[in-house]
């Protein structure tokens, strides 16, 4: 029942803005012309493809983000069980986090956390 509500609410959350945009589309005037619908780059003609190549840095940050995301997904069940854990179980998670913290410090020392 709860998941049914979540599903319905997600549909509602997507439907409402879509409906508003569609309704405004009927109300609004439509007078496109060549200059109006050209790409806005401060009045200068676009040079070449607009889907340009990006540098590797975005990918590196994306990868570090992914690694931490997976780590945190594993830590959430541990956090839920925290009140039932022995001290040993807690130290196991401490070790888990410290290994990844070492990875972060390694990335830091290697200079990959600098945004150039």
């Amino acid at each position: 029942m709860d998941w049914l509500y979540i599903g319905v609410f997600m549909l509602v959350a997507a439907f409402l803005p879509a409906a508003a945009i569609t309704a405004a589309g009927f109300l609004a005037p439509k007078k496109p012309n060549k200059v109006k619908s050209s790409t806005y780059e401060c009045g200068i003609e676009t040079v070449g493809e607009s889907w340009v190549q990006f540098k590797a840095q975005y990918y590196i940050f994306g990868l570090i983000f992914l690694i931490f995301d997976v780590e945190l997904v594993l830590l959430f069940p541990w956090a839920v069980a925290y009140n039932k854990l022995t001290l040993f179980g807690i130290f196991e998670a401490v070790l888990f986090v410290l290994i990844l913290l070492a990875g972060l410090i390694y990335a830091w020392r290697k200079g990959d956390l600098e945004w150039i």
Binding site: I21, A23, A24, G25, L27, A28, P29, K30, K31, P32, K36, S37, S38, T39, Y40, S50
Partner: peptide, 18 residues
């Protein structure tokens, strides 16, 4: 804002754009 025109740029990828 409800009565303002939508300007879709030339060459836009319509599905992700909307």
């Amino acid at each position: 804002i409800f009565t303002k025109e939508y300007i879709t740029p030339d060459g836009a990828d319509v599905v992700p754009y909307n």
